Simulated scan of single mutants.
Amino acid sequence: MEKVFTTIILVTTVQALIYTGIFIAVKNNRSLKLLGLFMFVYIGTNLQWIFKDNVKYLPTTFSYLVVPLFYLYIRSILGIARKRDLWHLVPAAVEFLGLLPMLLSPGLGDAFYHSGKYNTFIIIFLVYIPPVYNLLYTGLSLLALKKCRKSISLLYTDVEKQRLNWLYVTCIIFATLYGLNLITSTALLTTSLDSYIYLYESVASAFIVYWTSVYGLNQKNLMLGDSRTETDNTAETGKVYVQGEAPPGESYEQKHREIIAFFEKTKIYTNKEISLFMVADLLQMPYKEVSKSINLVARKNFNQFVNEFRVKEAKELIKSDRLDQFTLTALAEEGGFNSRSTFFFSVQIY
């Protein structure tokens, strides 16, 4: 069992360090730099274990930093990060500065951990509170993702929703890891059960590092910060109505005609990466104007508007002589859909 632990820890640590460098090296991308820092922090305890015989009291536990840093990454990619969010890092800074003197003077570490005078402090602040603290931030991360789902539908297509799924999975794994950590801290477990829990924690940690490495590079930054106020009055159907807004005037109807003409001419809806910001940039029109024109005249959000064009495209292909060339999956992709399930659902609506 020990060889398994050793192998998993070493492989996980090497991969995390490689991608830490890759993510941080990317220019003009704060989200990836945060993710790179998260990768390094996440394997902090691995570094302690690897260098335990050479460096005493290496202050890389980061008990109060792992999930808060991931939470800041989520806020960054959603476009809702603010400078004041840095206060979330204060407890981690206090922990690091408190442990740093022990690295510089190991005698202080011996007195702190082995004298018995500080046992209560150690149990409360270094054993019991960290898993609860990280579980709290796991909940905040899930809440941030949930709150922004409607905004994503108004500005992007279903592809971007699906791209966020890896963040949900990671948060769920965090919840199980820190839940088990809390159990092992408070319960007396048999050696056998304890070993299996540590094995699960090692495998889950390796999975998070691999998962983050694969999906982190492909995750797009979303710009939801300025759009949150526009979605406060979103109905359950996903249609947007601006409170106190009069029926769409001639200017919005004209803009709506321009948007439709642009879609029909360029067939931009077949691009799976399409977003409200992309359309607005190509039309040289403020994205809020594009959004309002679609909302007020078509009475649809951006995702619904795009999918309606995609369904029409698929229907035209079905009527054409090229039908025999396509499977259902290929037909969906030709129309711009990311999956057959989204295609079938949209066909039923439109």
Rank of each mutant, 00 (worst) to 15 (best):
L282T: 01
K267A: 10
D281R: 15
V242F: 15
Y287L: 00
Y252E: 06
S251F: 03
K315Q: 14
R257F: 00
K288T: 09
L222D: 08
S227R: 07
G216V: 13
F262I: 01
Y241L: 12
L317E: 05
Q284N: 11
D232W: 05
R310I: 11
L217R: 13
N301C: 01
N221I: 14
Y269I: 13
A280N: 03
K239W: 07
L222G: 08
N218K: 15
T266L: 14
A298I: 11
N301V: 02
K312E: 08
V297E: 01
G244K: 04
L296I: 04
M223K: 15
A235P: 01
F309S: 04
S251I: 13
R299K: 14
L282P: 07
E316R: 14
R299D: 06
L276H: 09
L283W: 04
Y269T: 11
I259W: 06
K319E: 14
E264H: 14
K292L: 02
H256G: 00
Q243S: 12
K239G: 00
V297C: 06
S251G: 00
D232S: 11
F263N: 01
I260W: 02
V279T: 07
I294K: 06
K315V: 15
N303T: 08
E308N: 06
T237E: 13
K255R: 13
F309C: 06
F305I: 02
I274N: 02
G225M: 08
N301S: 02
V279L: 02
R257Y: 00
E289F: 00
T270N: 03
Y287R: 03
D232P: 04
E258I: 12
P247W: 07
F302V: 05
L224G: 04
D232L: 14
S293K: 08
S275T: 15
T270H: 03
Q254G: 03
F263E: 04
V297S: 01
P247E: 05
A235I: 01
R228E: 12
G244V: 01
S275R: 08
E236T: 06
R228C: 00
L296C: 06
R310N: 09
V240R: 07
K267Q: 15
I318S: 03
A235K: 12
G244C: 03
N303F: 05
I274V: 10
